[in-house]
Write a protein that binds this DNA or RNA. Structure first.
Lengths: 152, 152
DNA sequence: GTTTTTTTGATAATGGTTATTAAAAAACAA
DNA sequence: TTGTTTTTTAATAACCATTATCAAAAAAAC
């Protein structure tokens, strides 16, 4: 899993995130670069603890606080989508930093990005019906993934 | 806001919740009854802190832990829907204890229940596309309510 | 090279929720 | 009624992911 195994798409996301950091006048430190690379490469919607683990593998002195701050920074500049859960197991998506649906396994916590169109239309409909100016949304489906169905 | 002002619908929900508690072999204590009544009557999706405040108005010795436990119990027996937020301001719906969309004001935190059909179809579609056995879902729209738009 | 600003790392503080436990209340039995 | 068992309450300690604090380190600016 070295740098030669990074897919072109992930490489692209890395460039985008670096560019956004630069244009927002934030420094690109080794720690930030490491966090950013993990977020860009992972399809698993990792938690801060998981990112921390991965970063520690190449930067053993990295602090947990730094990971929190970096993820939060990337979220603030719109390069990472936060999936907050009230049971305290927040997950992060560095590939699609815009609202989109998720399918979540209630057993193993695996999270997928399903294909689903038409949500922007729903937002517009909500706008009309409620008078709220809709700015964002979140749609999560909860269930059992194929693996956990087999085990059950 | 005394008991004579309870709407027929709310009265109905109270009866349903009481019946469910009874059939599940839980005792109907004054504290539980107070919590339950507030949840059944409120359209505001109250937080535990708010429920606690209201309960204290008629039962000044009620403990916060009791409110937490009662709300959790009602959730467990399927009579209350929990809207968990990772910023620690969970809200509860005792009127529609099943998945349904919400419209949330990002400024004043007001929560509404909009009309929106067809979500069960979406769940079925997710089932087909992902292989997950979908059991539940959550759809939140975030924006600014009419009042907060005026103030802005 | 010196100064200024940003970032890091270590750790303390925060705060909603849960766990604990003795006392009170309710249900049950004799 | 009285005693016994079970459930529930009230008070508070514990939990834990996240945030705040701040001195040291690193990078940028001068």
């Amino acid at each position: 899993m070295n740098s030669r195994n990074i897919s072109p798409e992930a490489q692209n996301r890395i460039e985008e995130m670096l560019a956004k950091l630069k244009s927002s006048d934030f420094r690109i430190t080794p720690q930030r670069y490491a966090v950013l690379r993990i977020l860009a490469a992972s399809e698993e919607h990792p938690s801060v603890a998981e990112i921390y683990e991965s970063v520690r593998a190449e930067f053993p002195t990295t602090s947990l606080a730094t990971v929190y701050k970096t993820v939060s920074l990337l979220k603030d500049i719109g390069e990472v989508l936060e999936l907050g859960f009230h049971d305290g197991n927040n997950r992060y998506d560095g590939n699609r930093p815009f609202p989109h649906p998720h399918v979540i396994c209630m057993q193993c916590r695996k999270i997928m990005d399903p294909e689903l169109a038409g949500l922007d239309d729903l937002s517009a409909e909500m706008n009309r019906k409620t008078g709220y100016k809709i700015l964002s949304h979140r749609l999560d489906f909860y269930g059992l993934c194929p693996d956990c169905q087999k085990l059950a």
